[in-house]
Amino acid sequence: MTTQTDTTTAETVAEDVPVESQFRRDLRTRWIPRFAGYIAFLLFWDWASGGLIRAQLLPGPLTILEEMWGIVASGELWNHFGSTLRKIGIGWVIAFALGAAIGISMRHPWWDGFFRDWVVTTMSTPGLVFALIAAMIFGFSPVGPIVAIVVTSFAFFTVNIAEGVKALPKDLFDMARAFDVDSRRRLRHVVVPFLAPYIFAAMRYGFSISWKIATLTELFGASRGIGFMMRREYQLFNMSGLLAWIFFFFAFALLLEKVVLQRGIDHFFRWRQTAAT
């Protein structure tokens, strides 16, 4: 048997490849494409306004900024935003308490059987249904949106918390018991940190659902709130007003969810960051 040579792996020679700085790479793959995305969007918008859809029906970006400024200056924003936020706050707290209680009780198969169908049903029903019914029953009172929030979002708390309770790690529990840790400290150092991600996931989900359902219910029946203003502008066919309120809605939802809630969650999860590195 003779050995001939046949390269299966290409010959590579070490060479000092010019090192692209981190900054330039970031610029190339992150900031420029991102920026290009915004530019493309604005250009598309500008073209669509007039080109695709009549300009009155899709005002350009500047018109809307003007409108938004007008709403802020007149103080209307705080009036309506505060009203919506209050409803969300109340509804959210009730939904959390109710959802957590049911979720914890579902540890027992009997209560699981008792509640399961309701949880699944409310989760798979379009929010519109609850919004319509709440608006129909409660009319213009602020109770409508609150009830709608509770009914649509408690199931998310329930499911997440029930899931977390079921997944509680037995080994950590046994370890704590083996070390004679009393039940209050067990709760504080084992149960709560373990459940925290489930609870936070539920809180975030619940929050984004609350926003949407509150606005929707206000749309059908309310005398104040962001949804009410959207409805008014919609009926007046005032597109720049409608879009302005939509942008406000969005800005607040993102601000509260991504900044306030996320900050809180990150703060709580410092240990995970350090564990990872």
Partner: peptide
Amino acid sequence: TAAQAVADE
């Protein structure tokens, strides 16, 4: 859904 939410988190 819940599992998804937790996984997202």
